[in-house]
Design a protein around this nucleic acid. Structure first.
Lengths: 238, 238
DNA sequence: AATACCAGCTTGGTATCCCAAAATGGTATC
DNA sequence: GATACCATTTTGGGATACCAAGCTGGTATT
């Protein structure tokens, strides 16, 4: 985390220049999600300013947006990277279950099932040699893209935002190979049900998958909370 | 909408002084929800600045927050009060159905049913003499408070934000006395099912209520869209 | 040694200034 | 009369100066 006071002004996928605010928001989000700044760590506007070479105006704008994403929160007068909150993780899973099941039921009623192939291809792009980081991303994108298929923007955004909020915790989770394989299998089973148009089966599988993942996640973090705190990560018990 | 360049700095319910940002955000939200600024109307930071007697820094912060609430949206380089979007209203109802049903099912599993009395009292505080504005508020708060009982913050916030986003459209809806009475009856029926701990019945009633309300709302606005546009309100068809 | 106190520094909140891009409006040209 | 063109104004994005509140560290008093 060495200061490198150079305005980066990254370009987005369209090649258009991002505003400083977007640039700071994006980079800061990546640092938080990538755990380069640990949960519970304090942030000062001045540090971000010098770190990204932007002035306080775009920095403040970016902070306000990240606050609504739940990635940072106010700490009295200052800012703090949101701690990992086990109670919150449990609540998010219930929320996810509601919106994802609704989304997948909607998707099952759609006639065009060809778009499902894209998601399946994404899943299958992962093999034994795929780095853990990629597994992580694909696992999130599966749920996000599945929700997008529903065509309902609110359901989609709800899932996307929830997955963003879960991202760090899922990355910290101690997972074995078997767990990755299990998720892969469950994802495929869900897709199969959707392709068959079997909404009840898809809903049941997805629901079990989300709750099962939550239980493993919370258990893992709960057991590992000592180690996490030793690494400087604030973990709030359920 | 006469400029009155006086810093108001309203106080919140705790009596503590709000920051300029909070003050501007709150007042601007009330103007938008109260239709003092019509859907589709352009906003300039300079106008808000002079209108509320704040400088551009808190004004911009407030705009960023209202954007995430969906009350305003970017219009190229500038800001616009979000138009009434019939397609969006239909999608929100599906989203509401998912989260509200999940919330009410959770609530049904709770042991303490006494809190339901508070909501019932709120409903019963409205009678024939109650101003229409109060009916409107209570109708929204019913859903918000019901979701709060679930104890799940994400479900609660989802419902609260969705109701905020629906608020203007519901106010514009052409409703007869019968419609108000129908909603009142349906709300009571839902509460009765919750009190009885009958989750399936509560879910069914709530689901029908939300979808029925949506259909009446969209139909009403669709039929009245000419009149609404004549009043200067941007209405986007489904 | 413990504590009350104060100066100075840090930090978020705000106001204001500058800038580039876009909108605006008038004018000259065809 | 329509249109292309240019000067002016307006507007949002950004930079910076200033302020008040709060924290810090040192000091003086007991």
């Amino acid at each position: 985390m060495n200061p490198s006071p150079v305005a980066v002004n990254a370009a987005d996928t369209n090649g258009t220049t991002m505003s400083q605010m977007q640039s700071v928001e994006k980079q800061l989000r990546e640092m938080i999600l990538g755990l380069e700044i640990g949960p519970g760590e304090r942030l000062t506007e001045r540090w971000i300013e010098s770190r990204f070479g932007a002035s306080r105006t775009p920095v403040r704008a970016a902070l306000l947006r990240l606050e609504t994403e739940g990635l940072i929160c106010r700490d009295g007068r200052g800012w703090t990277v949101s701690p990992i909150n086990l109670a919150e993780l449990e609540q998010i899973a219930v929320y996810r279950e509601a919106v994802e099941v609704a989304a997948v039921r909607l998707t099952c009623t759609l006639s065009d099932k060809s778009v499902i192939d894209d998601i399946e291809a994404m899943l299958d792009s992962c093999d034994a040699d795929t780095p853990r980081e990629e597994w992580h991303r694909v696992g999130m994108d599966f749920h996000i893209e599945l929700a997008r298929l529903s065509g309902n923007d609110f359901l989609f955004r709800a899932v996307r935002d929830a997955m963003t909020r879960l991202s760090r915790a899922r990355w910290l989770e101690v997972r074995d190979e078997a767990a990755l394989g299990r998720a892969w299998t469950e994802h495929h089973a869900i897709l199969a049900a959707v392709r068959a148009g079997n909404a009840d089966a898809a809903a049941r599988l997805l629901s079990a998958h989300i709750i099962g993942s939550r239980d493993r996640l919370v258990t893992s973090l709960h057991n590992d909370r000592r180690g996490l705190r030793a690494r400087g990560f604030a973990v709030i018990a359920a």
